[in-house]
């Protein structure tokens, strides 16, 4: 007669103390990774980046409003904008630091992505940084062009981010522009 295969017995407390490396942050990062990966595969990197850009723009507005609610309604200067970049990333466990703040640009580097290792192979998620930084910079300084020349998502050891503050002709492939609208601009003829 065949032996009856019984499931292994598990102590009552073993489940709770099991080292499965799961918490809310890990779960959400995994979710974002799989979601972005799925979208990249289904619609391609460019369109996936567009979706993340849409969300990133909304996140940028939200964060800009949050900092203005605490620091005042007036436009922030480039130094403050740079410090906000570093601060908002710090709060979500990013490792950004300021390299330079010049009249026409803010230069930053990053040693640790808030998405941690889950960002590797998911370059569409970089549109989150581009849009958040670009939105905040443009809404306070009038214009922003964000260049992500190195990104951890593509295997670089650090991210290298330059936020240009004055327009110029032509855009590189790794650049995105952000504009501030005037009150009353609707673009839809309404």
């Amino acid at each position: 007669m065949a032996d009856i295969i019984r499931p292994p017995e598990v102590r009552a407390d073993a489940v709770q103390i099991a080292e499965v490396g799961l918490d809310r942050d890990r779960f959400l990062r995994k979710l974002v990774r799989e979601l972005s990966g799925t979208i990249e595969r289904v619609v391609g990197l460019e369109d996936a980046s567009g979706y993340v850009a849409t969300v990133g723009g909304i996140m940028g507005e939200w964060l800009d409003e949050a900092y203005h609610a605490e620091l005042g309604e007036g436009d922030f200067d480039p130094e403050t904008v740079a410090r906000i970049f570093v601060d908002l990333k710090r709060r979500i466990e990013g490792g950004f630091y300021i390299v330079a703040v010049e009249p026409d640009r803010i230069i930053l580097r990053n040693t640790r992505c808030p998405f941690a290792e889950d960002v590797v192979g998911r370059p569409s998620l970089c549109m989150m940084t581009s849009n958040v930084f670009g939105r905040i910079a443009a809404d306070n300084l009038g214009y922003a062009r964000v260049r992500l020349s190195e990104v951890i998502a593509k295997g670089d050891p650090e991210c290298h981010v330059v936020v240009y503050l004055t327009p110029q002709d032509g855009l590189e492939a790794d650049e995105r522009e952000y504009y501030r609208l005037k009150p009353g601009d609707d673009f839809a003829g309404l």
Binding site: S49, M127, N131
Partner: peptide, 12 residues
Amino acid sequence: MRRLARSSSWQG
């Protein structure tokens, strides 16, 4: 439309 206007990223 206003959201599209504020960025050079193509959005669907």
